[in-house]
C-alpha cells in the first residue's frame, strides 16, 4: 500500500523548543493512531501535515506533495482541531455551511452537505442554535461535522474524544472504525491510550517529538522481549495449568488468584501455542484469558522507560 503521508527527517522547532525532532515516518490508508503524552508533538505533526506549519528541517509530503498552501492537497483533507474555538455569534449549521463554502461548494451543495454532516453527528436538532449555547460535547460534534462534511479522503482528528460523554465516545469509535473500513485514511491523535486502542491497532508512538515506535500494538509488544508478558487465565484447575507452564524455561513467575492463574512469560508465542494445544487436548478447561499488560499503556511505559 502506498503511503499517504511521508515525512523524512522532519523537524519543527519554536525558538528553543523542539516540537518534532527528526521524524521519518510514512502513514498508509486506514486508521492510524497518533499517540503520546501532552507535548509529545502530535498536534505539531498534524499541523505540519495540514500545511499550517512549514518544517524547520526535513520534508513532509501528503498525497505525494508538500501540503503548505497546496490547494490540491487541502481539497482532499478534513481537519477536526483540538482547540475549542469557534467564530462568534454563529450557529452550528452556519459554521459547517460556511466552511463548506470555503471548499468551493455552491450554496445548495454546501447546505445539503452541512445538513447531512449535522445529521451524522446527531446535531440536527440543535444545529440552528448558537454555538455559544452548546455543551462541550456538542461543540466537539459540530467540529467533527465540519471535518466530515466535504467527505475528505484523509481526515485528521486531533483529540476527537475530548469532551464527549461515554455514549458519544462509543459512537465516535464506531464512526472512526467505519471511516477506516470504507477506505478513508484517518489520523487520530490522543494521549489516552484506551481511546486509540478502541479504534485501531496501528499506532505511531511519539514522545518528546521523536518516534518511539510504529506499527501494530501486538507487534510492538513482541519486540519488547525484555519485558515479560503477563497472561491471566481463568480455569477450573489452576494448579494443573500452572504445572504445565512451570516446566517451561521461558516462564518467570506464576501467581494464583480465585480460579485464575497469572503467568509471566518471556516467550508469548510459545506460551499461546502451548495453551492452544492444552485446550485442544482438553488437558485444561480454560474459561477466560487476558493479557494483563499487552495494552498500549504497558507498551508505552516500557518504551519510555
Amino acid at each position: 500500500m502506498s503511503a499517504i503521508i511521508e515525512a523524512q527527517g522532519l523537524s519543527k522547532w519554536f525558538g528553543e523548543v523542539v516540537a518534532v525532532n527528526n521524524l521519518d515516518v510514512s502513514i498508509e490508508p486506514g486508521v492510524t493512531g497518533l499517540l503520546g503524552p501532552n507535548g509529545a508533538g502530535k498536534s505539531t505533526f498534524i499541523k505540519l501535515a495540514l500545511g499550517l506549519y512549514s518544517p524547520s528541517r526535513g520534508t513532509m509530503s501528503v498525497f505525494g506533495e508538500p501540503p503548505r498552501n497546496n490547494l490540491r492537497v487541502l481539497r482532499r483533507i478534513g481537519y477536526c482541531p483540538e482547540f475549542d474555538r469557534f467564530p462568534e455569534n454563529t450557529t452550528g449549521y452556519e459554521f459547517v455551511y460556511w466552511l463548506n463554502r470555503f471548499y468551493g461548494m455552491t450554496g445548495a451543495e454546501a447546505t445539503r452537505r452541512a445538513e447531512e454532516a449535522c445529521e451524522r453527528v446527531k446535531m440536527t436538532e440543535r444545529m440552528d442554535d448558537l454555538i455559544e449555547t452548546y455543551s462541550r460535547g456538542m461543540r466537539q460534534r459540530i467540529k467533527i461535522a465540519q471535518a466530515l462534511a466535504p467527505s475528505p479522503e484523509l481526515l485528521f482528528l486531533d483529540e476527537p474524544m475530548a469532551g464527549l460523554d461515554p455514549e458519544g465516545r462509543e459512537e465516535m469509535f464506531a464512526l472512526i472504525r467505519e471511516l477506516g473500513e470504507n477506505g478513508r485514511a484517518v489520523i487520530v491523535s490522543s494521549h489516552i491510550l484506551y481511546e486509540i486502542e478502541r479504534v485501531t491497532s496501528h499506532v505511531v508512538l511519539l514522545h518528546n517529538g521523536c518516534i518511539l515506535a510504529r506499527g501494530r500494538v501486538h507487534d510492538m509488544r513482541e519486540l519488547i522481549d525484555e519485558h515479560p508478558l503477563a497472561v491471566t487465565v481463568g480455569c477450573g484447575s489452576p494448579r494443573d495449568l500452572a504445572r504445565h507452564f512451570a516446566e517451561d524455561g521461558a516462564t518467570l513467575s506464576i501467581e494464583f488468584e480465585d480460579g485464575r492463574v497469572t503467568v509471566r512469560t518471556r516467550d508469548p508465542n510459545g506460551f499461546f501455542e502451548k495453551l492452544n494445544r492444552l485446550v485442544a487436548d482438553k488437558a485444561v478447561d480454560v474459561t477466560s484469558f487476558a493479557c494483563a499488560d499487552a495494552d498500549l499503556q504497558s507498551v508505552f511505559q516500557y518504551l519510555v522507560r
Binding site: R72, R75, Y103, M105, E116, E119, R120, E153, L175
Partner: peptide, 22 residues
Amino acid sequence: MSATLDKVEAMPAANAPYLRFL
C-alpha cells in the same frame, strides 16, 4: 454518530473557479 457514510459522496477533484471563492 450515525453510520451513514455512503450518503455523502466525495468532493469532485477539480477546484472551484477563483471568482466563486472571491
